[in-house]
Design a protein around this nucleic acid. Structure first.
Length: 106
DNA sequence: CTAGTGACTGTTT
DNA sequence: AAAACAGCCACTA
C-alpha cells in the first residue's frame, strides 16, 4: 500500500468543503491517466485512515463505489453534506462550484 | 504468460 | 441524454 502514498498525500490536501475527481488526483500525483488506479488505492484504505477518501468523486460529480453501492454512497454523501456540500436532485455534486482549485462558485 | 476485473475518463455512437 | 468503446495498468487466478 506504500506505493500509493503519492495519491494519499494529494488527497489529504483537499480542503474541507471541496471535492476532487479521480483523474485530478492522478494528475496532481504525477500519474495522468491513472484514474482507475486512484480508485483501487482508495479501496485499500481502512476505515481508520486519516485520508479523506470521501472528498474524491468521479468526473460526473457522482459518487462511485463498487462494493456496497447503496450503503457506501449514503455514507459518503452524508460526510460531504456535513462539510456543507450540496447535491443536486439527480444525486450529483455541481463540480463547477465545489471542485478543488476550480471554485467557480455560483 | 494470458485473461478478466475495476472507488475512471474522454470520445464516439 | 445514454450507452458503447477504447485507453489505462495493478492485481488475481
Amino acid at each position: 500500500m506504500e506505493r500509493y502514498e503519492r495519491f494519499y498525500t494529494v488527497i489529504r490536501r483537499i480542503p474541507k468543503g471541496s471535492v476532487a475527481t479521480y483523474g485530478q488526483i492522478a494528475r496532481l500525483a504525477g500519474l495522468p491517466g491513472r484514474a482507475r488506479l486512484v480508485g483501487y488505492a482508495l479501496g485499500l484504505l481502512p476505515d481508520s485512515s486519516d485520508v479523506p477518501w470521501y472528498r474524491v468523486v468521479n468526473a460526473a460529480g457522482a459518487i462511485s463505489c463498487r462494493r456496497n453501492p447503496f450503503d457506501e454512497e449514503q455514507r459518503q454523501r452524508r460526510r460531504l453534506e456535513r462539510e456543507k456540500i450540496r447535491f443536486h436532485a439527480n444525486g450529483k455534486i455541481p463540480l463547477s462550484r465545489y471542485q478543488w482549485e476550480k471554485g467557480a462558485r455560483d
